[in-house]
C-alpha cells in the first residue's frame, strides 16, 4: 500500500519532471503567464493589437534566430556573432536599393539575402577550411561588418523603406495578421520540414551530435557546415530587410540588438549551445517569450536601471528551467 503510493508519487514526480523537460511546453506556459502578468500590470497589454505588435517584433527576432538555430544545431561550438552586423548592413542596403519606391522591393530582397549569404559563406569557409573556432571567426567578421557600416553610411542615415514593404510588415494582410507573421509561420514550417524530413536535416543533427561518426558515415560535414553559416547570413539579411519595413529607415547599428538575443531565443527554445538536439519550433516560442518579457519591462514604470536588473535576473531564472549541464559524477 505504502509502496504503491510511494510509486505513484514517484510516477507523478517523474511526469512533472518530463513536463519541465519539454522546452516548448515550458515556453508556451511562460508566455501565457507573462501575458497575464502584463495584463495585470497594465490593462490592455494582452489586447489583440498589442499581441499583434509583439508578434511582429518577435518575428524579426525569430527570423534571425532561425539562422542562429541552424548554426548552433550543427555543433562544434557553432555560434554566429556576426548576425547583428549583417542585420544592420542589410537594413542599409535595403533602404538604399528601395529608396522609398515599391519597384525596388524585389532587387532589395535579392541584394539583402545575397549580401547576408555572402558574409555567412565567408564565416563558414573560415570555420571549416581554416578551422577557426566559430566564436572567433564570427566575432572577427562582426568587426569587419561594423567597419563596413561606417564606410557605407559615412555618418548619415540613408535610405527609406518602400511603402508596400512597410505595409507588409505592419498592416493586416490575411486573417487580420500582417504578412511578416505569415512569412514567419512559413519559415517555421520550412524549417520543421528541412530539419525533420530531409536528408540535409538529418545530417545537421548528425554532425551536431557526433561529427566523427557523421564523417565516417559519409556525411559531407564541411559542405553542410558551410551551408549552415550561409543560411544564417541569409536569414539575417532577410531580417534586416523586414526590419527597415518595420522602422521605416535604418539607424546606427540597429542589428546589434539581435546578436545575443537571437542566441538567447534559441536557448530558451530548448536547443543547447552544444548542438545536435532541439529544433526551431521551440526557438519561435523562445523569441516570443523574450519579446513579451522585454515589453512588460518597458510598460512598468521604473528606471532603466531597474528594468535591466530585472531583465538580467529573469533571464537567469528562465535558464534554470532549461537544459543545465550535467553534474560531475565519479
Amino acid at each position: 500500500m505504502s509502496v504503491e503510493t510511494a510509486g505513484r508519487a514517484e510516477a507523478s514526480r517523474l511526469a512533472a519532471a518530463s513536463l519541465i523537460r519539454q522546452p516548448l511546453l515550458v515556453a508556451l506556459i511562460l508566455i501565457v503567464l507573462l501575458l497575464a502578468l502584463g495584463e495585470m500590470l497594465s490593462p490592455g497589454f494582452a489586447s489583440p493589437q498589442q499581441i499583434l505588435r509583439l508578434l511582429i517584433v518577435a518575428a524579426l527576432l525569430g527570423i534571425v534566430a532561425a539562422g542562429q538555430n541552424l548554426v548552433i544545431l550543427g555543433g562544434r561550438e557553432g555560434i554566429d556573432l556576426s548576425v547583428g552586423g549583417i542585420v544592420s548592413l542589410s537594413a542599409i542596403i535595403a533602404g538604399n536599393v528601395m529608396n522609398g519606391s515599391d519597384g525596388g522591393i524585389l532587387p532589395a530582397i535579392l541584394a539583402c539575402v545575397a549580401a547576408g549569404a555572402l558574409f555567412g559563406t565567408f564565416n563558414g569557409v573560415g570555420v571549416t577550411l581554416l578551422r577557426i573556432p566559430p566564436l572567433v571567426m564570427t566575432l572577427g567578421m562582426l568587426g569587419v561588418l561594423q567597419g563596413l557600416l561606417v564606410v557605407i553610411r559615412q555618418g548619415v542615415p540613408s535610405g527609406r523603406a518602400a511603402p508596400a514593404l512597410s505595409e507588409f510588415v505592419t498592416r493586416p494582410f490575411l486573417l487580420g495578421l500582417p504578412g511578416i507573421i505569415w512569412l514567419w509561420v512559413l519559415i517555421g514550417l520550412l524549417m520543421a520540414f528541412l530539419l525533420r524530413r530531409t536528408v540535409f536535416g538529418y545530417r545537421v543533427y548528425a554532425i551536431g551530435s557526433n561529427e566523427q561518426a557523421a564523417l565516417l558515415a559519409g556525411v559531407p560535414v564541411r559542405l553542410i557546415r558551410v551551408s549552415l553559416f550561409t543560411l544564417s547570413g541569409a536569414f539575417a539579411g532577410l531580417a534586416g530587410l523586414c526590419l527597415i519595413g518595420y522602422a521605416g529607415t535604418s539607424f546606427a547599428n540597429v542589428g546589434e540588438l539581435y546578436m545575443l538575443p537571437s542566441i538567447i531565443a534559441v536557448v530558451l527554445g530548448g536547443t543547447p549551445l552544444s548542438g545536435g538536439k532541439g529544433g526551431y519550433t521551440g526557438t519561435m516560442a523562445g523569441a516570443v517569450l523574450l519579446v513579451i518579457l522585454q515589453s512588460i519591462l518597458t510598460t512598468i514604470n521604473i528606471e532603466e536601471s531597474g528594468r535591466q536588473v530585472i531583465f538580467g535576473l529573469t533571464l537567469l531564472v528562465l535558464m534554470l528551467f532549461y537544459g543545465r549541464g550535467r553534474a560531475m559524477r565519479a
Binding site: 538567447i264 543547447p272 549551445l273 535591466q308 538580467g312 533571464l315 535558464m319 543545465r324
Partner: peptide
C-alpha cells in the same frame, strides 16, 4: 548552477549594466 556560460554571462552582463 551549470548554466551555459555564453548565455548566462550575457544575462549577468545585463544585470551588472542595470
Amino acid at each position: 548552477l551549470r548554466l551555459q556560460a555564453i548565455v548566462a554571462t550575457f544575462a549577468t552582463s545585463i544585470f551588472f549594466t542595470g
